[in-house]
């Protein structure tokens, strides 16, 4: 009897689990579909938000050529590639690759780290706003836990990269100093070591 009950409980939980998985897969599919459908609009607003952190963003928004407009181009590319991934099971490494150029740029623009990376979080709010306005999909708003989680993972990956970028910046500075070029301005001409101080030849 006990064995039987145990069996049926297991059975029930299995079924429940299957239903839950199916449900979550369906939701995931719905969200993916919603992101596909609104991709352009979301990315546009996301980019616009990120670029609003510059004093004069009009050109960055307007110009589509990524070589004429490296900041706008890098943002558009990063967010456009990131968005569909946010409806899937997140892979940290993939996030890092996609966000690299964006983070490297923000890491050398005199911003504090929170300023530099805040735009990544913006998509949570933008997506909610856009879904809420879409009658067919408004219900999805209640269920963005996984999406938010994916954004968090992306943001964490970005923080690691931000730090890595800053470290690389200092390493670059150090490498330049070590290359001997600083001797250019320290008056420490190598030949000076051969002469008494003050002898300027």
């Amino acid at each position: 009897m006990i064995v039987l009950l145990d069996f049926s409980l297991t059975e029930i939980s299995r079924v429940a689990w299957r239903i839950a998985v199916a449900e979550s897969l369906r939701e995931q599919a719905d969200l993916a579909e919603a992101l596909r459908c609104h991709r352009q609009k979301i990315v546009e607003r996301w980019v616009k938000y990120a670029l609003s952190s510059y004093q004069s963003p009009d050109f960055f928004l307007r110009e589509g050529d990524p070589f004429a407009n490296p900041i706008g181009g890098a943002m558009r590319q990063a967010f456009d590639r990131l968005l569909p991934l946010l409806a899937q099971k997140p892979e940290r490494l993939e996030f890092s690759e996609i966000l690299r150029q964006f983070v490297q740029i923000r890491a050398v623009q005199g911003l504090v780290p929170s300023q530099a990376l805040a735009p990544i979080y913006a998509v949570k709010h933008i997506l909610r706003d856009i879904l809420a306005a879409d009658k067919e999909r408004a219900a999805l708003v209640a269920n963005l836990y996984d999406f938010d989680f994916a954004v968090d993972i992306a943001a964490l990956a970005a923080f690691d990269m931000y730090m890595e970028s800053r470290e690389r910046l200092y390493a670059t500075r150090l490498a330049e100093l070590k290359s001997g070029r600083h001797i250019l301005t320290d008056g420490g001409c190598p030949s000076k070591t051969l002469h008494p101080v003050g002898d300027d030849g």
């Binding site: 952190s53 004093q55 005199g110 911003l111 504090v112 929170s114 300023q115 805040a118 709010h125």
Partner: peptide
């Protein structure tokens, strides 16, 4: 952008006046 949470997000990180100063209105 008329999203209250987004504006909050900007404000929470944009206090330090730097070269790229959040969405502080440009003068």
């Amino acid at each position: 952008m008329a999203l209250p949470k987004l504006e909050e997000l900007s404000r929470s990180v944009a206090e330090d006046p730097s070269m790229a100063t959040g969405s502080v209105p440009t003068r």
